[in-house]
Simulated assay, not measured.
Amino acid sequence: MSHLDRKRVGIEHDRVTNVSSTDFPGYYPGEDHSWNLENFKKNFKIDIQYLTDLNSEFDLIGLDASVANAFRRIMIAEIPTLAVEYVFIENNTSIIQDEVLAHRLGLIPLKANPEYMRWFNKDDPNAEPTDYDTVVLRLSAECTANPDAPAGTTDPKLLYNNAHVYARDIEYQVNGHQPEWFPDGVHPTNPDILIAKLRPGQSIDLTMHCILGIGQDHAKFSPVATASYRLLPTIDITGDPITGELAQKFRSCFPKGVVGINNKGEAYIKDARRDTVSREVLRHPEFANRVKLGRQRDHFIYTVESTGAMTPDEIFLKSVQLLRRKCEVLRKFNLST
């Protein structure tokens, strides 16, 4: 098997080939694949396709799948964030039960830098919250009739005051040193999250304590809504050029933008990245042995969607730092034993 074929997962009409990994990443018997930092620097590459405050797509090129997947798992489960953990309900006369209301509040993502916060000791029943480990939020809303509502309206938002309680109604309670750590305060990442609907005579009055946590404890602490990757698709046209009506049919076998047709009427691969590897082209006998599908084993296309607690690039950088710390701990353990 050639070096190029090694780096590809084969896609055939009835199976996927070359999926097995080696005992050690990049190692093949009878060849020298010893670790070399300069070679790694030369082969490793990061390409950012787009980056916003909530979404990003970037390519990691030149890594083994075990390392690439470690980043994904760390982003989902091990990066600390702040979330509501304790809800002290003083009054709740809405139709939402206390437990459901508390659960709903806990799932609201919060915009707050967790760097300065300490871990709250939940295992100690006598532990008292402090400004170093707990952020306090308040929610107080009461629904009343609106005396100035337009005649004949049936819209609850016009008929009543505080008919809908939103995340924007949550208030941050400043404590101790926290103004230095949170100069912009602590607030929900999306102010339009609906918490409850109230009618006249109903009210909600409660206090929330937010602490540090990680996604493997509860999904509410995960900084990502989704974090996934896929391998870069590869499409090779083999043999004679595909032309004429056959080129049109060939193009229709792929998602839009994958295949183009040049001024000679020949099909060519325009952007394999857009392909979903549907294998539709392999269903047609006229394309047998004329196209080769695959995926590049060391080219990972990451998609990270943040909840808003931190930006996608921050999340990825924190996953790199966490993996490095894990390696350092493991290295010290091996040296000590």
Score class of each variant (00 low, 15 high):
Ala68Asn: 08
Leu63Met: 13
Ser34Asp: 07
Ala70Gly: 14
Ile269Arg: 09
Pro129Leu: 02
Ala272Gln: 02
Pro156Ser: 06
Phe221Gln: 04
Thr153Gly: 08
Ile261Ser: 09
Asp148Ser: 05
Tyr268Gly: 04
Gln97Met: 12
Asp205Arg: 12
Val19Arg: 05
Val259Lys: 08
Glu78Arg: 06
Arg73Glu: 05
Leu293Arg: 12
Pro80Tyr: 06
Ile301Met: 09
Val100Thr: 15
Leu4Ser: 13
Val19Asp: 00
Glu31Tyr: 14
Leu110His: 00
Met1Cys: 06
Arg283Leu: 02
Asn91Phe: 15
Ala247Leu: 14
Gly152Asn: 03
Val67Tyr: 15
Asp5Arg: 10
Leu107Met: 02
His218Leu: 13
Pro200Cys: 03
Ala68Phe: 10
Asn92Tyr: 09
Ala77Lys: 04
Pro25Ala: 01
Gly308Asp: 01
Asp123Tyr: 06
Ile61Thr: 08
Ile61Leu: 07
Arg73Asp: 01
Ser94Asn: 02
Glu12Gly: 14
Asp155Lys: 04
Asn263His: 13
Arg273Lys: 10
Lys332Phe: 10
Arg72Ser: 14
Ala70Met: 11
Trp119Glu: 04
Val281Ile: 07
Pro114Glu: 01
Ala227Trp: 11
Leu107Tyr: 00
Asp192Gly: 10
Ala227Asn: 14
Ala145Cys: 15
Val87Phe: 07
Val258Ala: 01
Leu293His: 03
Lys326Gln: 12
Leu139Tyr: 03
Ile170Asp: 01
